[in-house]
């Protein structure tokens, strides 16, 4: 009799021991699915599908039979399911609770964030490429096709740097590369755009103070004619035969002679 009692008892104990993890697991999966759905709707409401339209990433994902928002919400669902599995295992006693918490706080979250950063980096990089390509569409210069890819790979590089840092992988060497790259861009860019910046600053002054306006006859730096256009970077002056396009910083430097007649 006592033996049967023991068997029943242990059987009930086993059931009660496994019901809690089961409930936790099912609830966890349900929550994961619901949050996945919600994030999908949220992404649609935030007009993410319109934003990623036409990027290479979206096309690749489409070929795999899903979409960017599908991938993102799927990632969130997967992350939550992984959490639920871990939680179930730790309650069931298979996994040490401390170890689980460590895992949760540490690696799982990092991997999730890193994956998210890589995806966002890919999308932003592709989007930037598409946008720049579109704005350069009118410029039929083959060399210009380098610029969109350069921007795209710069963004990808930075995104992968952040993702690697998330995973606590040593990125010092890559940071040096990034530093060198940025220094090059800033120094060379500054040198290259020096005149444009000066012209732009002078242009702002000219536009605000309006020392001459369209239709005035002026003499600037020896170029005499009618002002046709005052832009941010250049002033167009036209005489009978010629049109002078003067950078605005030259206008400020040489001064303006207004011809009154």
């Amino acid at each position: 009799m006592a033996e049967i009692n023991y068997i029943i008892n242990s059987f009930l104990k086993d059931i009660s021991n496994s019901i809690l993890p089961l409930v936790v697991f099912i609830t966890g999966v349900l929550v994961a699915i619901i949050v996945g759905r919600l994030s999908r709707r949220l992404l649609i409401a935030a007009e993410v599908p319109e934003g990623v339209e036409g990027t290479r990433f979206e096309r690749t994902v489409n070929r795999l039979g899903t979409s960017t928002i599908g991938l993102l919400s799927g990632l969130i669902t997967l992350f939550l399911i992984a959490l639920a599995v871990g939680l179930t295992l730790s309650i069931g006693g298979v996994l040490d609770t401390r170890y689980y918490l460590e895992l949760l706080r540490g690696y799982l979250l990092q991997v999730f964030v890193a994956a998210l950063i890589v995806i966002i980096g890919l999308i932003v990089g592709d989007k930037a490429e598409v946008e720049i390509k579109q704005s350069l569409q009118d410029v039929k210069l083959t060399e210009m096709s380098l610029l969109p890819s350069a921007v795209k790979y710069s963004i990808l590089f930075i995104a992968s740097l952040i993702a690697l840092a998330q995973l606590r992988i040593e990125t010092a060497a890559l940071l040096v590369v990034l530093g060198g790259y940025l220094l090059g861009v800033i120094v060379l860019g500054g040198l290259a755009f020096k005149d444009l910046l000066a012209a732009g600053a002078a242009g702002v002054f000219l536009i605000f103070s309006d020392p001459y306006s369209i239709g005035d006859t002026v003499d600037i730096d020896g170029h005499r004619g009618i002002v046709q256009e005052v832009g941010l970077f250049a002033t167009h002056i036209e005489s009978d035969e010629e049109e002078f396009i003067l950078p605005n910083h030259l206008v400020l430097r040489s001064g303006i002679v207004r011809i009154r007649s």
Partner: peptide, 21 residues
Amino acid sequence: DAGKVMNKSRSLSYNPFEKSH
């Protein structure tokens, strides 16, 4: 060709777009 047009025309009254951009 606004510069030339301005020189071939005259103002009828105060120009509401003066100093505006």
